[in-house]
Design a protein around this nucleic acid. Sequence first.
RNA 1: GCCACCUUAGCUCAGUGGUAGAGCAACGGUUUUGUAAACCGUGGGUCGUCGGUUCAAAUCCGACAGGUGGCUCCA
Length: 615
Amino acid sequence: MSDKIDNLEAMRHSLAHITATAVQHIWPEAKFGVGPVVDNGFYYDIDLGDIKISEDDLPKIDAEMRKVIADNQTFERSEKPIDEAIDWAKQANQPYKVELLNDLKREGTTKANELTKAMMGLPAGTVGASSGIAEVGSVSFYSNGDFTDLCRGPHVESTGKVGAFRLMRVSGAYWRGDEKNAQMQRLYGVAFNTEKELRIHLEMLEEAKKRDHRKLGQELDLFFFHDTAPGMPYWLPNGVVLYNELIRFWREEHRVRGYQEIVSPLINKKELYQTSGHYDHYWEDMFTIESDEESYGVKPMNCPNAMVVFKYTTRSYRDLPLRLSDTDTLHRYEMSGTLNGLFRVREFRQDDAHVFVSEEQIKDEYKRIFEITELFYSIFNIEYSFRLGTRPDKYMGDESLWDSAEQTLKEILEESGKEYAVEEGDGAFYGPKIDIVMKDCLNRPWQMGTIQLDFQQPLRFGLKYAAQDGSEKTPITIHRVIYGSLERFIGILIEHLAGKFPVWLAPEQVRLITVNQEDATLAFAQKMLDRAVELGVRAEVDNSNESVGKKIRAAELMKVPYTVVIGEKEMAGNDLMPRIRKDLEVQPEHKAVTIEEFLNTVANEAKSRVSKTSF
RNA sequence: GCCACCUUAGCUCAGUGGUAGAGCAACGGUUUUGUAAACCGUGGGUCGUCGGUUCAAAUCCGACAGGUGGCUCCA
């Protein structure tokens, strides 16, 4: 770790501290939670009772912070034995700090200190003020001016040395992340060493807004949301092209890899979910229907139906791995506050498949699935990472089975040589999983694909196959999606490409622009359009009574890959000079081509799903 | 669901107590255009919904709906 990073860390810590200082100056009754450093900045959780901080209060807090900074107060570090610290916190009327300290006492400060040292890269056993590590049994405090806060540090020397920052927003946050606890108010800030870095960060945020998939979804006429169905997208013709092309690609690649597609009911009796176990774990998050005195659930996932399909007929070891895929529409009653454009919706489709395997086949099948993953994610050239989710608090089945399943997934990940993170307790209730995570334009992580191991549902549904030795065995199910949901994937795709889709995905691949409104010009354009349609190229004619410049601009704004102007020259038999969207260009000077060359090239590019033009 | 904020024409936005405005888009006309915005004109809004305060509400208050940023949740 370089000094600069350490300094940035200390600086952000100090700013969180200064935020608390300012809040206490303004609202002396404030009770403080925690104020950690996060990506690009810091936050502080504060309980002000009935007083609600709104964004209008930020300038006031900011001004107070800058006063403290202008004072250049020294951060005085001190240590207290844990019991004294608890007394201090009680006296200071800081119940959250008392709670933290009591927990620290229970866990032992040694462990906490060693953890801190590990984070700071210091050797074990280091203690004392110079290292910033408290003696065993003690905790550290930092004081500046009239404010003292329990804090592990490190801090900068004085309040004047904190670089550039900006308070960004305020939001609610549950104490210790548990919704059963009191809701506190969280003040967020970003902070950098220099004004310039801060400015660059803020500009980046502005740029990110331009590629927000919700904004581009509207500008490019891809989809919209409506009060009639919150959280459920209406897909417009342009968006449906994207949707269908992605599914077409998926079908082609899965068909050759032995997947067979099924379709199953969207509405199922509650008994199905009782059998699968979803009734106990998921019923509250489902849309439900009472009809003919029966209770139905709108399906939130495909697996129970896939189990039914497996059980439909006798199965043999010869059938395994049995790979059943589907893209049925799913509904989940997500909490209103969590809905977010295409990233979290209540209605969506997954590029789903359930692979039924014997225990010996798990590893090999996982490898095959990893290969598919690699293919799909490399074609879009978007960064992704793996995340292993282990047994959650709410789980089904016995622990030893979970442990061995988790071990298997770890081995698979290790063997794949890919880096991965472990998220304890993040598995599905029926088994551990490997998730593929991608980031949106604001760097927020989203779970995309997921590959889950399931020993439970096959047991619950009583799935059996005839083994080679004539015995009956229960298969294991691998649940897997590559894109994740088509909705979320399209959202990520829009943001990463800023709406500039490769030719194979572009809703409109070619726009023909007429120079004038003469009948002959229109007829010529129409003939070229007919040929394009014949070759499977998605083309449109813009014959509006506008200047060529304006029509070019319109095509450019819709991010159409190819624009061709049709006028006297073309009609006289001259070659076309297609205008190529900048990001597709391989060379600034493109060559003239005949209509046939042009349309065939576009058709081939779309078919081979290349990301650059060959003109 | 929780906290804060937002909702005015198809879109982007102005309008803070005296019965609604602009640009773009749309439509009509003039023009007949050569690679990112020709010109003139026209239509379009119960100011998210419902209720309240007031002589008077887009504007103040409340509820609800939808959305944004977080929290929580996340198969």
